[in-house]
Amino acid sequence: MKVEFVNPFYKATKDIFKLMLNIDPQRKDLKILEDMIPGREVSVLLGITGHLQGGVMFSFPMPMSLDMIKIMSGMDINIIDNFASSALGEIGNIIGGNALTELSKHNLICNIIPPQVFVGEHRSLSLANQKALLLTLTTSIGEFDLSVFLKTGQ
């Protein structure tokens, strides 16, 4: 797991947050995780296949995820229904797609497995002997995590 793999996802996250929410996330800290990614209440998980294999997880506190959908839709949002979870998943998908475009410029060709959205109490993710980098980002509507666990195939 190389730190360089995190940057395209971090950059794409910043770009898309700026574009969709007019929010500019700032990096707070970076941790290496060995066995478990601690989740917050709402998580979007993207699987990655190809030259790099593994996944990327965005994890948000509930109030922040509600605020995100509120900003986008201009509607009152009190629960993460299918509409909201689909929008969150799609934001993750678009960030992932942009990051993969960036990686492809370095001859790393990958694909995204459609996002899964988990809503509930702090869903954690077991890493099964992989290492992950967890980047905590701060914004005006809360703090969230971007975790990247990717290894080069073969």
Binding site: L19, M72, N82, G89
Partner: peptide, 22 residues
Amino acid sequence: TEEKIQEFGGKLMTWLIVHVGK
């Protein structure tokens, strides 16, 4: 179904904002 149409609506909104915004 309500489930699928909500899923579609969430994506449609996201696509629209990204396309028009960028």
